[in-house]
Amino acid sequence: MATTAGERESSLWVILLTFAVAMLFSVVSLPEFIPWQLGYLRPQWVELVLIYWIMALPHRVGIFSAWVLGLFVDVLTGSLLGQHGVAFIIVAYIASSLYQRLRMFAVWQQSLIIFVTIGISQLVNFWVENFVGLSQWDMRFLLSALVSAMLWPWVFLVLRHLRRLFNVS
């Protein structure tokens, strides 16, 4: 079924909004009573949403959108301009070359792939920060990839529901 240009435009807002909410979740400050160490468990919301849209709509969200998104995340988190750009390009590359297989996988298998993908992007982020002397070797950055993978089934369900509700294609 062909969609008109107007429908496409309105569905673009859904995609942009989900990215905005993901960015929000990735900087929302934790209440004071939560120990700061739990910050290591914060999942990579933007990457999860990115993977979903690439998997669902590879013709609309691709490597270039991922890169632009990465620049905004860089500004949001005060990291070097281009750092998340590279990380997101890698995530987008893996997702867009695997999307046909990902669609066939069970959700837990998708979670495994996502653990590896986000792990790689976290490693790239870490390399950059280490290179400019901002952080020291610390395996805890993989925790975030683990939590992201565990949250994937729910993110997947919510986004699929939204996609069907607003007929995004």
């Binding site: 990735s26 900087v27 400050s29 934790l30 700061w36 160490q37 910050g39 290591y40 914060r42 988190t77 005060g78 920060e129 901002l134 952080s135 610390d138």
Partner: peptide, 8 residues
Amino acid sequence: GVDPDPNK
């Protein structure tokens, strides 16, 4: 806002 990265 507070930086979400606990290392920073």
